[in-house]
Design a binder for these strands. Structure first.
Lengths: 185, 185
DNA sequence: TTGATACATATCTATTTGATATATATACTA
DNA sequence: TAGTATATATATCAAATAGATATGTATCAA
C-alpha cells in the first residue's frame, strides 16, 4: 500500500481558503502553516496541473496589468468531495520528527559536556523564538475582527505548536541540569 | 548552501556504537532511534559505500556459516574526527514536523465536529501507545546493568520523546473540549 | 541606474521514502 | 515431510520531497 499523497490535499484545502495561485499558496504555507507543513514549488505546480487533469480544480488565466499573468485555480464540487472524504479518514500513523539535535545528543559521549550544553542553549533560544512567532500569529488572528469559519481551527493548530514547543523548552532546562550533574560525578 | 547530509553522520555514529552491518543499523534505528530518526536501506548501503570511498570507514568481508555473508564496517580515525567535528557544529534550524492530523484540523471547518473529535481520539490513543513504548525502552535501558557511556545520552533523547508526547496528549484533551464548546455556541 | 523586493511560474538535481528482489538458514506447524 | 514464517543480509527501484535556481515583469528607494 503506497502512502497517501498528502500534498494534493494540502493544495485542495488551500483552494477552499482563498488562495488561488501557486505563489500565494507557497507564501501562505511558509508564513502560517510552517509549524506543521512545508512544501516546494516543485510540488505545488505539478500538483495543481494534476488536480485540473483529475477534475478536482479548474484554472482561469488572468492577465493583470503591471504584474505577470497568473493562473487562478478554483476547486470543483468533485474536488470538495475528495477533500471531505480525506478529512474523514482516520490518521494512520504518528509522524516521526527527524531531529538532528537529538541525533547529536545520542552520540554526545564523544564530545565535551560544555559543547553539548552549547547545543542545548542554541536549541532553547530557537525554540523560544518559535514560541514567540506562534504567539504573535495567534494574537494577530484573534485580534483580526473578520473572523472566518476557519479561525478556531487555525488557533487549535497554533496551540499544538505552542504547547509542544513549551514542553521542549522545559526539557532543555532539565537536560542541562542532568548533564551538569553527570559531569560532577 | 546545500543542506548538510545528516545520514552519513547517523551512520558514522552507529559505527561507534557497536553496529557494523547495514542490516544491524536498520534494526537499531527502527527499534530504538525511531522517536527522532528514520532511515531506509536505500540510504544506508550507498552511504556505507561512500564512507569507505572517503576513508571514513573500512570494510571487512566475513563469511559466516549458516548465514549469508556480511560486510562489517568499522570507523577510521578520520571518520571519528569527522563525526566529532559535526557534533560541535551548532544546530542551524529547528526541524519542522509534517503533521497530517494538524493538516486535517486546519481544514476541518468542512467537516462535522464529531468526526474531528474522532480524529483527535485516534491520535490520542496512538500518542499513548508511543508514550508507553518510550517508557518501556527507558525502563529496559535503566535496568540493564551493563551501562555503557552512551546510556545517559540515550535516556535524554527518550525523555524528550516522553515530555513532548505528554504535551501533545494534553493538547488533545483540551482541544476536544474546545471543539465541544464551539459546537454548543 | 543599480539593487532590493514583490509577484508569478517553472524546472532541475539530489535526497528520501517505501517497496520489492534476491539469497540462505532456522524453526514451527499442519 | 512439505509448507510457511521469520531472521539475517545486501541491493535496487520508482515516486515523492527538498532545496535551489532560472526566468520575467514591475515597483521603490538609495
Amino acid at each position: 500500500m503506497a502512502k497517501e499523497n498528502y500534498t494534493q490535499y494540502a493544495i485542495l484545502g488551500l483552494l477552499t481558503t482563498g488562495y488561488h495561485t501557486g505563489y500565494a499558496m507557497k507564501q501562505m504555507i511558509d508564513g502560517s502553516l510552517n509549524h506543521f507543513w512545508k512544501i516546494s514549488y516543485g510540488q505545488i505546480y505539478p500538483t495543481l496541473k494534476r488536480l485540473v487533469e483529475q477534475g478536482f480544480a479548474e484554472v482561469k488565466l488572468s492577465s493583470q496589468e503591471g504584474k505577470p499573468d497568473k493562473k487562478e485555480y478554483f476547486i470543483t464540487p468533485t474536488g470538495e468531495e475528495t477533500l471531505r472524504n480525506w478529512l474523514q479518514q482516520p490518521i494512520q500513523e504518528l509522524p516521526i520528527e527527524k531531529n538532528d539535535l537529538l541525533l547529536k545528543l545520542f552520540f554526545s559521549r564523544h564530545q565535551d559536556t560544555y559543547n553539548t550544553i552549547d547545543l542545548l542553549d542554541t536549541y532553547h533560544s530557537k525554540l523560544s523564538e518559535r514560541y514567540n512567532t506562534y504567539a504573535g500569529i495567534k494574537e494577530m488572528i484573534l485580534s483580526d475582527l473578520c473572523d472566518q469559519g476557519d479561525t478556531p481551527f487555525w488557533i487549535i493548530t497554533l496551540d499544538y505548536g505552542l504547547c509542544t514547543t513549551e514542553a521542549a523548552m522545559d526539557w532543555c532546562v532539565k537536560t542541562k541540569e542532568t548533564l551538569l550533574n553527570l559531569k560532577e560525578e
